[in-house]
């Protein structure tokens, strides 16, 4: 992990920005409805973590107060074009592991396929815990390591390849959420036990 960070680990996301919307079209087609329903629970000032090219922006009403963050400058450039007409949306380039926001700044947090890519997920989640107001909730759409006996080793093997150009497939995000101090209040399987929705509370 440290090795990837030293080599500007986010460079792979800068490179992927141009084809990101196409590569994720299937995810939005198949899981878009689930995401929209889940993210509609977010209230007040919401931190949208790893906003990427802004694929998730349509899941929020135009007047929702959003702060979208991402590590990739190229991704944010594309997302900015999708923010037209969204007066209450701000985009900021920042690393989720070292957020520049004050403690207890946000009412809600939303993540979408984020913690498969953050090099130190527990540190990133600890930062989210810090900036979330007490009683605030975090809504997550994440793919995680499967517990199916024949899938788990395959996901470990695939991760050796995928981590060089994209996400890691074997993250234990549910456990990481607990390690960061959150209370897990809901967990829903939406495809096998690999694609999940989480609700966590500070």
């Amino acid at each position: 992990m440290a090795e990837l960070k030293d080599k500007h680990w986010w460079a792979k996301w800068d490179r992927a920005a141009g084809k990101f919307d196409f590569m994720n079209r299937g995810v939005e087609l198949r899981f878009g409805k689930d995401k929209q329903e889940w993210f509609s629970r977010a209230k007040g000032l919401t931190l949208l973590v790893a906003v990427g090219t802004g694929l998730d922006l349509p899941y929020f009403t135009k007047d929702h107060s959003l702060v979208g963050i991402d590590i990739s400058k190229n991704m944010l450039r594309i997302a900015a074009k999708k923010c037209e007409g969204r007066k209450n949306t701000k985009l900021i380039q920042v690393d989720v592991e070292t957020l520049s926001f004050a403690d207890n700044s946000f009412d809600s947090i939303v993540t979408s396929c984020t913690f498969c890519s953050v090099p130190d997920p527990v540190q990133g989640l600890k930062e989210l815990y810090r900036v979330l107001k007490p009683g605030g909730k975090m809504y997550m759409f994440e793919h995680v390591q499967s517990n199916i006996f024949w899938m788990a080793p395959m996901m470990d093997a695939m991760t050796l390849i995928t981590r060089h150009f994209g996400p890691e497939l074997n993250r234990r995000t549910g456990k990481n959420v607990l390690k960061a101090g959150f209370r897990l209040t809901e967990e829903v399987n939406i495809h096998l036990d690999m694609v999940k929705l989480f609700e966590a509370e500070k």
Binding site: F22, M23, N24, G26, F31, H191, L192, M194, V195
Partner: peptide, 13 residues
């Protein structure tokens, strides 16, 4: 070939 219409999670397992 399928990334535009489905997801890796539906194809891989």
């Amino acid at each position: 070939f399928s990334c535009g219409v489905t997801t890796a999670f539906h194809v891989l397992p």
